[in-house]
Nucleic acid binder design. Structure first.
Lengths: 189, 189
DNA sequence: GACGATACGGAACCATGTTCCGTTTGCTCA
DNA sequence: TGAGCAAACGGAACATGGTTCCGTATCGTC
């Protein structure tokens, strides 16, 4: 007897579908490492041993795949904010530390920063996911730093966007970290 | 009698070729305004009333076309640096004023900032042209500001790159100017 | 006006994303 | 156990955009 649907709503999924979805996630993760988040759809499909149709069935927009692959890391990044705030010497230090975390995340994912700012409809889910999770994190840090009189107020979104933009095209010949550091310095009162 | 080649080297150009090149420049300028610097090649060709082959003959890489269209504005931008330095109250003010100029230039050209940082081979000439002309300009301003003890040293290229990156994706909903201002503030000693 | 060089046009090719539908497969129920 | 049906699959086909190539048209000269 197949496992019954304990909560009624989602109509169950076939085992092969679940298998393929998992295979796709792994294949995408590998492809992203090798070729960046813009790895060709066909390559990912081939790696997973499925047809391209299967990708689109499971991940209608490319951004859905990216989100699925990086979901955990984004979450970890968001959750680091309150921790850093609690343990850091000052709110500004916490902010700086968090920004380091975020930048590290971005520059190790080739093309992610670029995709993040893309206005193409296919990337809207990515945009939404990132903002939904990271805006609260930066807001927390910024508010604390402002309350402590350490920085001038800034839109959380603007800061995220600025950092994201600075990280576009990072490679061994362009390290965005010094620029991000200058930007954060510029926030100081 | 046709105008003789006073200096021997370039073997003269046919009149229709010159006409087409001019038409392409105008068509490209118009297309760039409407659709950004990534306007489809076919569109530009159609506007100019020529075939796509003609574009590639005159401008082998897309960047060559972009450079040709914006050459004068880049030059003006570069030439503004010494002027601003001479007339500005302080070197830092001159730097800020120049950056404003540069940012205005970038955000009015949709997609230019993005193309600037592209590592695609087709954009190499663009990259080269910009750096060749603007690096001396920022170097002048930065050196003066450093000498005046107003800012901490920074690679001219890094600054250009940072500003360029911040301007990627500028649109009515994202104004990079505040972020650029913060970045410049961050340079202050 | 003829002829050679130059330049032209656009079909053809390649790479990529996306859609669609005939076929296969897993699940259920008798 | 196996028949039937919905779910899922695969990949051909289509759309878009860059780039190349070559037969043809045009210019400039003699």
């Amino acid at each position: 007897m197949p496992a019954r649907n304990t909560d009624s709503s989602p109509p169950r999924k076939r085992a092969d579908a679940e298998r393929n979805k998992q295979a796709l996630l792994e294949a995408a993760a590998a492809a992203f490492v090798d070729a960046g988040v813009n790895a060709p759809v066909r390559d990912i499909a081939a790696r997973a041993g499925v047809g391209v149709g299967t990708i689109y069935r499971h991940f209608p927009a490319r951004a859905d795949l990216i989100v699925a692959v990086y979901r955990h890391q984004v979450q970890a990044c968001a959750e680091a904010a309150p921790t850093l705030l609690a343990t850091g010497p000052t709110p500004h230090d916490a902010l700086a530390a968090w920004v380091d975390l975020f930048v590290d995340f971005l520059i190790t994912k080739h093309g992610l920063a670029e995709a993040m700012r893309s206005d193409a409809a296919a990337f809207e889910p990515l945009h939404a996911y990132f903002l939904e999770h990271l805006i609260p994190a930066v807001t927390l840090l910024l508010d604390a730093a402002v309350d402590a009189g350490q920085i001038t107020p800034i839109e959380p979104f603007a800061l995220l966007r600025g950092i994201g933009n600075l990280c576009i095209g990072a490679d061994p010949r362009y390290d965005p970290r010094p620029l991000v550091a200058i930007l954060i310095r510029g926030l100081h009162t």
